Amino acid sequence: MSSVKQIPEKIRKLYEIVNELEAMFPERHFTPDGHLVGSIGEVLAEYHYGLELFTASAETHDAKALW
């Protein structure tokens, strides 16, 4: 899953944009949180722990073990 290896650079780019937006609009916060952070965690957990993710917002669980 080579896409996972791209996550650190994508997050760096997100924070660059956050910093630009906060400089443009100092009275507002543009923190990447909520679904974004949760989804990043899920795809990393899928990769590192051999999980199969369920459809987003599935009831009770986010994934199942493949082993």
Rank of each mutant, 00 (worst) to 15 (best):
Q6G: 11
V18P: 01
P32T: 00
L53Y: 08
S3W: 10
E9W: 03
R28M: 07
V18D: 00
G41S: 13
S57G: 09
S2I: 02
G41I: 05
I17E: 07
R12E: 08
H35F: 08
S39G: 10
L51Y: 05
G41K: 10
E22F: 04
M1H: 09
L66A: 01
P8M: 05
N19F: 11
G34P: 02
S39P: 00
N19I: 01
E27D: 14
A58N: 15
P26I: 00
L51C: 03
K5F: 10
E27Y: 05
K13C: 13
D62K: 13
N19D: 13
V43E: 13
M1A: 14
Y47N: 04
P8Y: 00
G41V: 03
K10P: 00
Y49D: 14
L21H: 04
T55I: 15
G34Y: 02
H35P: 12
G38W: 10
G50L: 06
L21Y: 11
V18L: 03
A45P: 05
L21S: 04
D33T: 12
H35Y: 05
V4L: 02
T31N: 07
Y15F: 13
Y49S: 09
K64R: 08
E22I: 02
F25L: 13
D62C: 03
M24F: 04
A65S: 08
L14H: 07
M24D: 14
E16H: 07
M1N: 11
I7W: 06
G38V: 06
F30V: 00
V43H: 07
A45E: 11
G41M: 05
N19Y: 10
I17R: 02
A56H: 08
S2C: 08
E9G: 07
T31A: 09
I7Y: 03
V37H: 04
Y15L: 12
L14F: 07
S57F: 14
T60I: 15
G41N: 07
P32W: 05
P8H: 00
V43S: 09
H29T: 13
E9N: 10
H61S: 07
E42C: 11
I11C: 10
S2A: 12
I17Y: 00
E16P: 05
E20T: 13
G41A: 12
N19G: 10
P8I: 04
S2F: 12
A56N: 11
L21C: 08
S2L: 12
E20M: 07
K13R: 08
Q6S: 13
